[in-house]
Design a protein around this nucleic acid. Sequence first.
DNA 1: GTGAAAGCGCTAACAG
DNA 2: CTGTTAGCGCTTTCAC
Lengths: 352, 352
Amino acid sequence: MSRTADEPLSLGTIPVSPPTLADVAELAGVSRQTVSNAVNNPELLRADTLRRVQNAIADLGYSPNRAARNLRTRASHLVGMRFTPAQEGTANALMDRFVHSLVEASAEAGYHVLLFAGDPTDPVSGYDDLLRSTAVDAFVVTDTFLGNPQATWLELRRAPFVAFGRPWDTPESTHPWVDVDGAAGAALATDHLIEADHTKIAWVGWRKDSWIGEDRRSGWSRAMRSRGLVTSGLACRVEDAVASGREAAGRLLDESGPTGFVCASDTLAMGVLHALDERGLQPGRDVAVVGFDDSQVAQVVPGGLTSVRQPLEDVAVEVVRALAGLLATPPKMVPGVLLEPTLAVRGSSQRR
Amino acid sequence: MSRTADEPLSLGTIPVSPPTLADVAELAGVSRQTVSNAVNNPELLRADTLRRVQNAIADLGYSPNRAARNLRTRASHLVGMRFTPAQEGTANALMDRFVHSLVEASAEAGYHVLLFAGDPTDPVSGYDDLLRSTAVDAFVVTDTFLGNPQATWLELRRAPFVAFGRPWDTPESTHPWVDVDGAAGAALATDHLIEADHTKIAWVGWRKDSWIGEDRRSGWSRAMRSRGLVTSGLACRVEDAVASGREAAGRLLDESGPTGFVCASDTLAMGVLHALDERGLQPGRDVAVVGFDDSQVAQVVPGGLTSVRQPLEDVAVEVVRALAGLLATPPKMVPGVLLEPTLAVRGSSQRR
DNA sequence: GTGAAAGCGCTAACAG
DNA sequence: CTGTTAGCGCTTTCAC
C-alpha cells in the first residue's frame, strides 16, 4: 500500500499526489530553487527563464504545498477566530456578518480564517493549543461583551492578535483593536428622535456590567442633556432578551409615558415592539423605536425597525490591516481604531 | 523549565519559538521517536516512560508543530468551507447557524474549519487553490441552492467532500451528502394548519428553477391532496424577498381568500405578515402563517412566526461523520443521509 | 541569474 | 518497547 517509485497512486478518494517543485523544475529544465524563485521572487529571474517556469507551473497545475511552506517559513497564513454559538432567540447575528466581512478582507491580504470552538465557560479555551502548535499566525478576538480576558491572556503570551472591541477593562493594554463608537451610535439614534420632536425618549439598555452597554447608554444621555431634556425615570437596564425588553418597555410606558425608545440592541427593540403591539400602539405613528446593530430582524420586521448600523465591513478591513501590521517584519503596531456607526432609518421611527 | 544556552529570541511580537520534540526528548531523557509515540501511540510505551514523557510535555507546554506534522502525514486536519456573504434583508441566517454547529462537530473529530471566500459569480472559485496546495483535507459544500456545480467539479478532481444538500441535478453522483427533507417539512406545516381546521391553505414558494423550492412545494401539495383539499389557484412562485412575499400574499388574499399560508422561507413568510398587517388582519387569529428555516426573525417577531426548523446540529454531526468516513483508511463511504425537520409552533399559526 | 546543500519538526519504517 | 535513519516539500544560505 506504499508509494512505489515514480507512480503516485490514488489512496482512497484522495487524488494522485499533486506536483511538487521538483516536477516543475524537471519539466522546465531548471533547478528546484529556480522554480521557488519564480514563485516568490520572480524579479530575480531572467524574463525567458521566468516564462518557461511559469508555463511549466501552469501545465502541471502546480501550487506550492502549504504544509511544507508553513514549516519552512514558520507562518501559516491563517488567522484564528473563536466562534461560539450565538444564543437562539437573540437578534444578534452581528458576529456572523462580521465573519463574512473578515473572510473577504483576509483573503485580499492572503489569509484564511480558521474557526475554532471553545468551551463557553472558559474564555481562553481553544487559543492555547492553536498557539503552541503554531497552527495560526494570529487571532481575531471578538467576544468582548463583558471584559476581555482573552486579550490579557494573549498579551501575556505575546501572541499576535487584534481585538474587535476596546480594552475597556484594561486601559493599559497596548494591543491593536478596532471598535465602533457605540456612544456615537446611541446619540445618533437619540438625535434622530429629537429632530422628529420627541422629548421623552427612553433608554432600554443592558445590565450595568456591560461596558459596551454603558458606552451606548452614555450616548443617549449625552444627547438628551445637550438638548436640555430630562433623562430621569426614562432609563432601565435589563437582560438582552425580547421578553426583558417587552417588560421594560411596558413599565416605562406605564410610569413615564415616553414617545420614543432607543435600545441597546435589536433584540430589546423587538421587545419594545411587542409591548407596543400589546397596547395597540403603532410603531412609528404612536411611539418611535430605534434598535442597535441593524440585524436582519430589523430589516424584515413589518414596518421595518430603525437601527444603528455598525460598519462591519470597515471593521474587518481595519482588523486585517492591523493584523498585517503585526505580522510584518518589522511589526508595525497600529493603534486603536474607532469607527462611526450610521443610522438605518425605517418605519419604526417615522410617522407614515 | 527554561531554555538553555542558545536561547531563542523573540522576533517582534512573535514569542520565543515553542519547544520541539527534541526539547521534550532531552528533558525526558528519551529519543525523539519515543516522544512522538507518547503523543500518537501512547499504548506502545511502558507506563513509567510514558509518564516521564508526559511530564516533560506538560512542563514545557509542548504541542506538536502543525506544519511539520501536516507535511509528514499529508493531512491538515482542516476542512474547507466557502463562505459567501449572505444577502442582506433576507432572513436566511441558516448557514451561519450551520457553521456554528459544524465548527463544534468538527472539533470533536479533531478538525478545524477553514473559511474561504469565493467570487460569487464563479461557484468553483477558491476550491482549486486550496485543493492543489493541499491546504485542506476535504470540503463541506453548502451553497447548493441552484444545482451544484461545485460537487461535479470536486468529484471530477476526486477531492473528498460532503455536501449539505442532495445532488438534485446530478442523480448519478456518488458523493456523500446530508440533507433535510423539505417536502416533509412543508407537509408538517400544512398538516399543522389542516388540523386547526384550515382548508384553503396557500403556498408561497420560490422560482421554479430551485430544486429545493419544488421539493418543499411538493410536501404542501401532497399534504393537501391526501386530505382531499384543492390546491389550484392557491400557489405562487416568487423571488425570495420580503417584498415578493408581500405582493404574492396580497394577490392570493384578493383572489382566493386563503386562511392559511405555508411559505418556502421565513423571508417570504415575513412578506405575508406584511400583507396581513396592511389589511388589518392579525396573524394567528385571522390568518395562519408558517415559515421555513426557523430563523431568528421567526423567533423574535411580535407574536412569533411558526416555522419549519431544520436540525442543523444533526446535519453538522452527520456531515462530520461522513467526512471522517471519507478520510479514514480505508475510506468508508457513507451514503446520503436525509434528516427530518420539526415544526416550531408560535403565535402566527395559533388563535390566541 | 542559477544551482547545490542544509534543514524546518515531525513520523514511518525498521533495527536493536 | 526504544532508538536510529530517512525524508515529506519547501526556502534560506552560499557558491558558481
